[in-house]
Design a protein around this nucleic acid. Structure first.
Length: 344
DNA sequence: AAGCCGGGGAA
DNA sequence: TTCCCAGGCTT
């Protein structure tokens, strides 16, 4: 759009936002002066997580950790338990570590100070500095990317392009409200499929709408194929108390889970050998096959053959441990009759 | 720049 | 099924 149109476009979106914007619990308080801790928790929870789901965890998390001091003093296991089921658990680990940093150095006062915290990247730093201090930093998230790609009929927006467009369009008079307005528009009107152009305050300026195929912008991202992974896991104990191990590394790192050992499905006898190696490591005795569980994540599909076993390390209370969905599925096999290898 | 990291909702 | 979600970190 022309520069002369920019004030009208901004006014149209902000008027829509003031009337139709979402009423969300982390938006309490004066515009641009939100409570930093609550806004921070919300932004981290909402990274790659839909608002409807973030709401549930926001209440759960703030009940458990009402202040940054309480969060910093809590054991990491308690933080992960509150995060259980929400995914991307590095967010919880980073938030906990950042809370301890904040109790020493104080809450961030600038965009750069937010950016210095672990788990706070370009999006979150722009969001928090604009929401808590009305700092003129434009957010760049999935909603912003889609809204701007459509406004300019750009089928393949690069991150750099999106940021430049967002910076140029940001309303310097109300940075926090502007950022929320663009995201609300993307989440409720300018949706990925079947955008509701009939009620969009920006439709007069929208190149994608003018094209007649607004849903074509931006083009879908190409995603890597889902990798399949197979492993044997052992269930020692029952659904209430079982042998659990701490997972390390990137995948589900920090969570507890059943001892497991991957194997190559192309190799004959690999499952039996994996079970043998796993039990030898645990000093446990293998029992019957309890069943098979499959769990699909964004980038991989994991299948476990779950065996009962006896012996091994001490049992852990399952209820107070943070586990992945996969481990909960495997634990649900406890108490069931061993599955026959030769079903009738 | 490209991979990796969870789990679930919408169409 | 496919695509996406108030992204960040690592390589």
């Amino acid at each position: 759009m022309s520069d002369a149109e920019q004030p009208r476009l901004r006014a149209a979106l902000l008027a829509w936002f003031d009337r139709q914007g979402r009423d969300l619990p982390w938006r309490q308080g004066p515009e641009g002066r939100r409570d930093p801790y609550r806004a921070w928790v919300a932004e981290v929870l909402l990274q790659q997580t839909q608002v409807a789901r973030g709401l549930e965890y926001y209440h759960r998390f703030l009940t458990a950790f009402p202040s940054v001091q309480v969060l910093a003093a809590a054991p990491l296991d308690d933080v992960l338990k509150a995060w259980e089921g929400c995914g991307y658990y590095a967010r919880a680990r980073n938030l906990h570590r950042a809370a301890q940093q904040v109790t020493r150095e104080g809450l961030p006062r600038t965009h750069a100070e937010w950016l210095a915290l672990p788990g706070v990247g370009p999006y979150t730093a722009a969001a928090l500095s604009s929401f808590t201090q009305n700092a003129p930093h434009a957010v760049n998230d999935g909603n912003v990317r889609r809204v701007l790609a459509r406004l300019h009929a750009e089928p393949a927006p690069t991150p750099r392009w999106v940021q430049q467009q967002a910076d140029a369009l940001l309303d310097p008079a109300r940075p926090g409200a502007w950022n929320e307005a663009v995201m609300d528009l993307g989440a409720t009107v300018c949706t990925p499929k079947r955008p509701q152009c009939g009620v969009c305050p920006l439709s007069d300026w929208c190149g994608a709408r003018a094209s007649g195929q607004p849903g074509n912008y931006p083009a879908p991202k190409t995603r890597p194929a889902v990798q399949t992974v197979q492993a044997v896991a052992v269930l020692i104990g029952n659904a209430q108390r079982a042998v659990l191990e701490r997972r390390d590394g990137a995948l589900l790192g920090g969570l507890l889970g059943l001892p497991a050992q991957p194997f190559d499905p192309a190799q004959p006898g690999a499952p039996a050998q994996a079970l043998h190696e796993l039990c030898a490591r645990l000093n446990a005795a293998p029992g019957p096959l309890l069943g098979e569980v499959t769990h699909t994540m964004t980038h991989r599909q994991v299948t476990w053959q779950v065996y009962a076993a006896t012996g091994g390390p001490p049992l852990t209370d399952v209820g107070s441990a943070a586990l992945s969905r996969l481990d909960h599925k495997a634990l649900a096999l406890a108490g069931r009759r061993a599955q026959s290898l030769f079903p009738v």
